[in-house]
């Protein structure tokens, strides 16, 4: 199964998007967005993986060599996680405000309020 890891990444992205579409609670939607973002972590790490290669960290026991997994995608995953965490915090803060202003966190009811 050479492509299973990639397919799981795609599956997570679509699963999260499906959750957002069906969401009846803003916090639920934020969690679904986190799942979508986890798909991107899986994709990045899968792209950089190499069988039986070690971590891209060297030292006295591991002399520098090229038989390691790709550090570039790992660094991108780190960036991804940090941005995801802060955006999640921002969205949750927005949900708190929406709940205070409108007294509901159901996206459907929010649409009804506006129109």
């Amino acid at each position: 199964m050479n492509v299973l890891a990639y397919l799981i990444a795609g599956y997570l992205v679509l699963l999260g998007a499906y959750g957002i579409v069906r969401s009846q609670h803003l916090v639920h939607a934020v969690v679904c967005l986190s799942i979508t973002q986890s798909g991107t972590y899986v994709l990045l790490l899968a792209v950089g993986y190499q069988r039986s290669a070690s971590a891209p960290v060297f030292g006295s026991t591991t002399k520098p060599n090229l038989h390691v997994v790709d550090p570039v995608v790992q660094a991108m995953t780190l960036t991804d996680i940090v941005v995801s965490a802060t955006v999640t915090a921002l969205l949750l803060a927005l949900s708190v405000q929406i709940n205070k202003r409108h007294g509901t966190v159901d996206p459907d009811e929010l649409i009804a309020l506006r129109g």
Partner: peptide, 24 residues
């Protein structure tokens, strides 16, 4: 892994043992 083949020697050239930190 073409990025790896460029990033790891660049990290080692700057004496950074953690290649991920070197990239970041």
């Amino acid at each position: 892994h073409r990025y790896r083949d460029l990033a790891v020697p660049a990290a080692v050239a700057h004496r950074t043992a953690n290649a991920v930190a070197a990239v970041n």
